[in-house]
Amino acid sequence: MTRSRLPVVAGVDGSAPSTDAALWAAREADLRGIPLRLLLVNDDPGRAEQAAKALAEAASACREQVPGVQLAEETTQGHPIDELVRRSAMAELLVVGSRGHGGFVEALLGSVSASVAMHGACPVVVVRGHGTTGPVVVGVDNSRGSRTALDFAFEAASRCRTDLVAVQALPDAYFHPGPFPHPDRDELRADAERHLAEQLSGWASTYPDVPVRRIATNEHPVAALREAAADARLLVVGHRGRGGFTGLLLGSVAAGALHHAPCPVAVIRSTNP
């Protein structure tokens, strides 16, 4: 099987968020023209019957709402995080719900979804909210990670025939004159917007069908992305961008987006170290 024909893999566990994730994955697989594999990883052999029922119900919902999708169902024994991460190396896209069974009610993000987003070998989408309409929003910071995210975001916007909103959140100092001679605020903002436009130019020419809106702001990156994604179908962030510590497995912006975004979040790992 070639890379382009690898499936979309969705982890399910019988919870409502995992069903939402399965339905999102079914629509995405149908758009991409590739198979969908629903995977339930059961860590309790005594619940085999319950696991089979949960998987069948998720599959039935997908077939009902996305009748054209090519769908396979699988249950396997093991630790959900370990198995989903392992399967990510054999998937074009891995999709999970924001929270599954066993999570604390007050938690914003479940341990499985957070860990899979950290360690997944392919793009990982954590589904929260519905995100079925609106633009694709992407965070930009001129890092290798954000360039990989831009590639994914433009392709997603083109496939969905929707707009792309590119957000670059810069430090406050970028927009405020300091103690030394400095351009005025309008010129600083113009420079920031020009810098953002330059980062987008290559992709904009490759995807002329995608209308692009640019936002350069001095807000905190997570707040800026959350605001821009209020009506988005998808928020795309790099796995790690500028300003992160080398030892961190998941950048602070990606982690913040996963916890606070109002729509599905795609975390894209750079193909190069």
Results as ranks from 00 to 15, higher is better:
R3E: 12
L6C: 05
P7D: 07
P7W: 00
P7C: 10
V8G: 06
V9R: 07
G11S: 04
V12K: 02
A16L: 06
P17H: 05
T19P: 00
R27I: 03
L36G: 10
L36E: 08
R37Q: 13
V41M: 09
D43M: 09
D44M: 08
P45N: 11
P45R: 08
R47I: 05
R47G: 11
A48C: 08
A52M: 10
A54M: 11
A54Y: 10
L55I: 08
A58E: 10
A59H: 04
S60R: 13
P67K: 05
Q70L: 15
L71Q: 06
E74H: 15
Q77M: 10
H79I: 03
L84R: 05
A91F: 01
L93V: 04
V95I: 11
V96I: 11
G97E: 09
S98F: 10
G103P: 03
F104E: 07
E106G: 11
E106P: 09
L109F: 11
G110A: 06
H119E: 06
G120M: 07
A121D: 07
V124W: 05
V124D: 05
V124R: 03
V127R: 01
V127H: 03
R128V: 05
T132D: 14
V140H: 09
D141S: 12
D141Y: 11
N142C: 07
R147F: 01
T148S: 14
L150S: 05
E155F: 02
S158R: 13
R161E: 15
T162P: 00
D163H: 09
D163V: 00
V167W: 00
L170E: 14
P171G: 07
F175T: 02
P181T: 04
P183G: 08
P183V: 07
R185E: 15
D186V: 08
E187I: 05
E198K: 13
L200T: 05
G202A: 15
W203F: 15
A204G: 14
S205K: 13
T206Y: 01
V210E: 03
V210D: 02
R214A: 14
I215M: 13
A216E: 11
T217V: 12
H220I: 00
A223R: 15
A229K: 04
A230L: 10
R233Y: 06
L234W: 11
L234C: 03
L234A: 03
V236C: 04
H239T: 03
F245M: 14
L249Q: 13
L250R: 02
G256W: 02
C263I: 01
T271P: 02
